[in-house]
Amino acid sequence: MKNLLTILFTAILVTGCGQQNIRQDGTVASDPASHTTFKPIMVAAKSYERDRMSDSDLDALLSLEDEVVEVYDPIEPFNRGMFWFNEKMYLYVLKPLSKGWSFIFPKPIRNSISDFYYNIRAPIRIVNAALQGRGKDAYNETGRFLINSTIGILGFHDVGNDHYNLPRQEIDFGTTLGHWGAGPGFYIVLPFLGPSNVRDGVGLLADYYLYPPAYLVNNDLEINTNYVIIRAIEGVNEISLDAGTFDAILEQTLDPYLVVRDAFEQHRRALIEKDK
C-alpha cells in the first residue's frame, strides 16, 4: 500500500499544485462578491503571450530535447490491466470506505493516525539509512523514533518533524539497492500496492521483515490477515487525508496510466540520486 500512497501523494504534481495556504484571519480590501455585475471573463491565456519573448529567444533559452525518464515497460498490457483493477478498487472500495472513515474521525485524529503509521515504519528507515552508509540519517531517524514514541505518545504526534527539525524522509530497501547501483528493472503495477518496478518490488519484500505489524501473525495461514487489515486501514486513512489527487489524474489527464508511471519513476529516481 505504501507505494500506492506514495504515488497518490506524489501525484499532486500532475494536478498542478498542492493546496494553498489559507489563513482564517484578515479580510480582503475588496470583495468581488459585492459586485453583482461581476461575471467570469474568459481572459484568454494567450493575451499575455504578446508581451513576452520572441520565439527565437525562447528557443535559445530552453532546451528542446526530449528529456524524459525512459521507463522499460515490457509487460505494459498486464500492467494496464492491474492499473485498471487498482483504479476500480480505489473508486468503488477504498474511496467509499475513506468517506465513511472521515465521517467517523475528524481530521486531527486522522492526521495522528497517519503520524502513527509513519512512526512504526521507522525500523525500515533506520536500517536502510545504515545500509546506505548514511550515518547521520540513521541517527536522526533513531532519534525521531525515540522522541515520537515517548513525547509523541506512541507516535501519534510527529514531534520530531514539528519541533525538532527532523524532516521526514523516504528511505527503504528499494532506495538502498538503487544507492548501490541497482537499476529499476522493468516497470510493474502491483495489485493494491500500485506502481513499482523490479528493484522496488524486491525492496518491498525485504522491508516487510522490518515492519513491526508483519509479526502480529494471527493464524497459521499463508496470509497474515492482521497485517492486511492494518495496511488497509492505513490506506483508507491516507486516502481520506488526500484531496482527490488520484481522482484528478483519472479525470483530467489524457492517459492516467502513463502519468502515474512517469511520476513514480521520476520520484524514485530523484530519491536515489539525491543521496548519492
Binding site: C17, G18, D66, E67, V259, Q266
Partner: peptide, 24 residues
Amino acid sequence: WLVYDVIIEEVSLVSNYRSTYKEI
C-alpha cells in the same frame, strides 16, 4: 520572472506531460 516548470516532490510537471504526450 515567469514559471516554465513546476517540480513537486522531485517530479517535473513538464517532464510528466512530455513523456505522456510523446507516447500519444
